[in-house]
Each structure stands twice: as structure tokens, then as C-alpha cells.
Computed example of a mutant assay.
Amino acid sequence: MKITKWKTVSSEVALKANIFRYVKVKSESPTTGKVGDFDIIQCLNWVNIIAVTKDKKVVLIKQYRHGTDQVTVEIPGGAVHFNEDVFLAAQRELREETGYSSSNWKHIGRVDANPAFMNNYCDTYLALDAEKTHDQEFDPFEEIEVYLRDLKDIPQLVGSGEISHSLVVAAFYFLTAAGEA
């Protein structure tokens, strides 16, 4: 069976929230003609940054996440504003969340956040020779602790579950695949 894109029969925005829209979609399979109802979450695209200092330390952050009700270990990242260039968003998020900046950037990957029911993606950038250049500039409800860890420690942090955010784990996979780890 050849899998092809389904035809959207109808769509309705059921809820507009702060960071997403919930859309009810009715779609038809071109293969079988079956019509079904599907839930779609429309979100802004995302960007993650692996910032590595000259002495091979990764800039990590800790912050409280409401979804899991936990303090998590992550890399800097955030939403790409509407009509914002993804690379400029990466530079902005690194500076705002950590106070670090870099002049040596490389795009190392993109993943779909969850294509089963979400329409957004997450780009990952590598910022080499990162250095502290600014004070942090938090969004209204951000509380972020910045700390450095040796790059060689990252696999253990992922393996132990200390780093458990799926988009962060994917970012470190891209780092390894790019031959930068």
C-alpha cells in the first residue's frame, strides 16, 4: 500500500490558549476513502541551543516545568516568534536565558516535536566558543539557573535520566551525529 497525504475535509479552531491552538480536523484517506476526526495542536516552532565554551563545557540550565511538575536539566531554547528568523531566535534565546553569546554557530538538526498531533518543529544550533557577555533577560515567569558541565559528561546525564527532555536528548544526538561531541 502506498501511503499518501490525507485530504482535509474541514478544520475548526476549538480553543486558543497562550502557547497553542487546539484544532479539530476532519480528514479523508485517499487510499480507503475513510473519514476521521483528529486533534491537532498548533504551536510556535522551537529552537534549542547547545552552547559549548572554549574549554569544552556545555551551558546547561535548570528550570521548573509545569507539565511534569519537576525541575529539569536542559539546554537554552525557546519559541521562535511569529515571522522571526530561526537563527536570530537561537541567538536571542541563548543571550536571554543564560547571558552567553557566540560568534561561531552551526545548524545541526531539526525534528518534528510530535507529528502525531502537533504541527511544529524544533531546530538545534551549536554555538561554539560561547562566553558570558550579558546579564540574563528573563521572560515574565522564567526562573533559570545556569551552570556548566563537561561535554564528556553529557552521555551519562542522558543515560541516568537527569536530562530527560526529549528535544534536548535529540539535540545531543545531533551533536554526536555532526561529529562535534
Rank of each mutant, 00 (worst) to 15 (best):
H134N: 08
Q70F: 00
T124A: 07
W46D: 03
V9I: 11
T4C: 10
E74C: 03
F38C: 12
P115I: 15
F82C: 08
A17V: 02
V73W: 15
V168Y: 12
N45H: 10
V25P: 07
L157S: 08
E93C: 08
N18D: 12
V158Q: 13
Y22E: 11
W105V: 12
L94T: 01
S101E: 11
V111D: 00
T68K: 06
L151Y: 05
V13T: 13
D135F: 07
S11L: 12
E93F: 04
V111F: 02
F38K: 07
N114T: 02
A51R: 11
Y147I: 05
H107T: 00
R149A: 03
K62C: 05
T124W: 01
K2D: 03
D69P: 08
T4W: 08
I40P: 08
A89I: 02
Y147P: 03
G179Q: 01
I50L: 10
V9K: 05
K106N: 05
I144L: 03
Y125C: 14
F38R: 09
V86F: 10
P155L: 13
R149I: 10
H165V: 15
Q156L: 06
E142C: 09
Y147D: 06
S29K: 03
N83Q: 13
E143I: 09
M1G: 14
V86C: 09
D55C: 01
V146L: 06
R21F: 00
S29M: 04
Q42H: 02
G77D: 04
S11E: 15
I50E: 06
S102A: 12
C43T: 03
G159K: 11
R65D: 04
I108P: 02
Q136T: 08
G179C: 08
E162R: 13
I50R: 10
K106A: 02
G67C: 01
H107D: 00
L126M: 11
Q136N: 01
K7A: 05
R95V: 11
E142W: 07
I61W: 03
V169N: 13
F20P: 02
I3T: 14
A79E: 12
W105R: 04
V13G: 02
I41Q: 01
N119M: 13
H134F: 03
T4V: 15
T176Q: 15
E93D: 10
T8V: 14
D69I: 09
L175K: 06
L148R: 01
T4L: 09
I3V: 14
L167F: 08
T68Q: 07
K34I: 06
H81V: 04
S166V: 04
G179R: 00
S10E: 15
A14D: 04
R21W: 04
P76Q: 07
N104K: 09
P140G: 13
K152E: 14
